[in-house]
Design a protein around this nucleic acid. Structure first.
Lengths: 190, 190
DNA sequence: TCAAAATTTAGACAGTTGTAAAACCACAAA
DNA sequence: TTTGTGGTTTTACAACTGTCTAAATTTTGA
């Protein structure tokens, strides 16, 4: 990413970025990520190849920007607003809503890309990271010796695991069921 | 992978596979995975390019085989032998040992490949998968409504999270400390 | 031991990638 | 209007990828 996202940028650059990510989203719904070429992306939105490399390092960079655009919708402030206690549940619900909204897109993506493919893995990793940063502020304090970063990663991991199960492994699951899964996982069974 | 691993294969094929993965391991210690080319791999072990594509689809395929070779050392039977109760601890110790043994290699790899790079992610994913299959046999039964596969993935995730912290994020940690982290994470703090 | 079957290798090919230099354009300041 | 500046586009290029064909070599089994 040569233009840092969230940066001030002129109308033209914004339009170009939007066009490229639009192309990518369309292509992701049509074919395997591996088979998508930079040429194809550029044809789609009618920009020359050089312009693509002007904005992005490669197609991985672009797809990263796509995930960034998606995850923009999870509002960080939701968490800070609440007293720490149920921060996790709030964030989970928020993420669940976001994934629901994008269900069509996600279905199309997993139709062409296996669940363990680099693409899907990358997607999940992106969200795990953003969720980790969200969670690392609102964590309950007492965790013995375990470093806080590790704890935040742990919660983010588990949230994303459930979301993956529901939305990418395509198990029909209601929000209530998903909440139950999360709670049961986080509660020691023995 | 065109030759299914674990298959019966003649001495020659075995030697070839070994030579290629040897090359890959060496190169991984020297430079970023992205920058490694198939040509380079072949020069290293003095096999023609056509032979490479005879055995592997691409370099990702080869590196997958490398991880497979590494993880061979975790013996599945360890788990089956034990009564379910402490299966998790046993597997964790076993994996910790394996990662310790390969510490030099891992250090060299993360020296050239960022922790969030596709390569490292792929590495962790591979182990998460094998650990999931190991764990899905020896899980404690009572988990409410949560599907068993999900539970196994959860434990595998958490184990690998700690291992990643210790061996890839390079935090000096003893086995005892690591065990504590794992236990604290799996125990609900509230 | 020999011939058939299978595997390995050399060489070539079209398509892709990422980079670099130069031409081009839009827009603002002089 | 002219000029300068920053960004866009064109074009060209060297390297890599993955596939294919045909020749060479090895393996197999009768």
């Amino acid at each position: 990413m040569k233009y840092t996202p969230g940066q001030k940028m002129n109308r033209n650059a914004a339009r170009t970025l939007a066009a490229f990510s639009e192309s990518m989203f369309l292509l992701l719904g049509e074919k395997e990520f591996d088979k998508i070429t930079v040429n194809e992306i550029c044809q789609r939105c009618d920009y020359p190849r050089a312009t693509f490399y002007n904005y992005f390092d490669d197609k991985y960079d672009l797809v990263d920007y796509c995930w960034y655009q998606l995850s923009k919708d999870i509002h960080l402030d939701v968490v800070q607003a609440r007293p720490s206690g149920d921060a996790l549940e709030t964030v989970f619900d928020e993420a669940f809503r976001l994934f629901s909204d994008q269900r069509d897109l996600l279905n199309r993506i997993v139709a062409h890309n296996p669940i363990d493919s680099p693409l899907v893995t990358h997607f999940l990793n992106h969200f795990t990271r953003t969720m980790t940063t969200i969670l690392s502020t609102g964590m309950p304090k007492r965790h013995g010796q375990t470093p806080l970063v590790l704890v935040a990663q742990y919660y983010a991991n588990t949230v994303l695991l459930v979301l993956k199960w529901v939305f990418l492994s395509q198990h029909e699951t209601t929000l209530a069921e998903a909440r139950t899964y999360l709670k049961e996982l986080l509660t020691k069974p023995v």
